[in-house]
Amino acid sequence: MTDVAAIPVLDLTTASSGTLLRRRIMAHRGLLIGTGLLTLIVMVALLAPLIAPHDPYAQDLSRRMIPPIWYEKGSWAHLLGTDNLGRDYLSRVLYGSQISLLIGAAVMVISGLIGTVLGLAAGFFGGRVDMIVTFVITVRLALPLILVALAVVATVGGSLWVVILVLGLLKWDRFAVVMRAATQQVRVLDYVAAAEAAGASTLRVIVGEVLPNLLPQLVVVATVEAASAILLEAALSFLGLGVQPPLPSWGLMIAEAKTYMFFSFWLIAIPGTALAVLVFAVNMVGDGIRDVSAPGGRG
């Protein structure tokens, strides 16, 4: 039997909606864990120059392939060991967070802008606009994302900004699909009609009335897309057609360590774990926001 006394009683008469939301957020373990991890990684990225024990690019061939500290041959000078060029692995992993976070955020902004504008327009105006946008989305979905991204990066030349632009220009489809459906639902609500009746301009209705009510959905898609952009950059860099050496991209670090992975597993395990933890944190934040913003909770 559940202990009835243990169930928190919410005082609905005095608690404001803001207080209720705050209580829901504090009660959501996944959201707290995700936010905590993500904050930690952002701090690491910002403070990398201060906390990294070594220069992530400094090679020392006399100190190659030192294993991490928990191995017998580990050294306190290099807590996570060194790579095949004698670069301090901890410093490289710390700096690598900057690349992944930048990719996630920048791709999210570019694709979010494109997708939101398309989705809002399609959902708000309907008719012919909706038909055209739906067609554009269908065409985009038919193009194999990874292949096109690889091919374009290969011909243009790989660099951090090329990867960001290519992914940003390709990955707007989910934003468009979700924003279109959500706009269609909000469009018919009374307050939109009221704003239109009051003589508000179309742009004002969209930006002032429709968009703010879609923010929860927008944020959820944004986290999903940021996580997927981070994984895609890692995959592109792993295949050698993304961020170029000597940048410490986690995907690139795994590619560089692949030759040695059978004898020095930690060389791929460390950047791989870093990637997984970051993507996990972003996903937890997204799932948490979805749960907290939808009163019904998880379906």
Partner: peptide, 11 residues
Amino acid sequence: QALPSFFFALI
């Protein structure tokens, strides 16, 4: 969702 596919493949 969190594990990169190529990393999982290598493991």
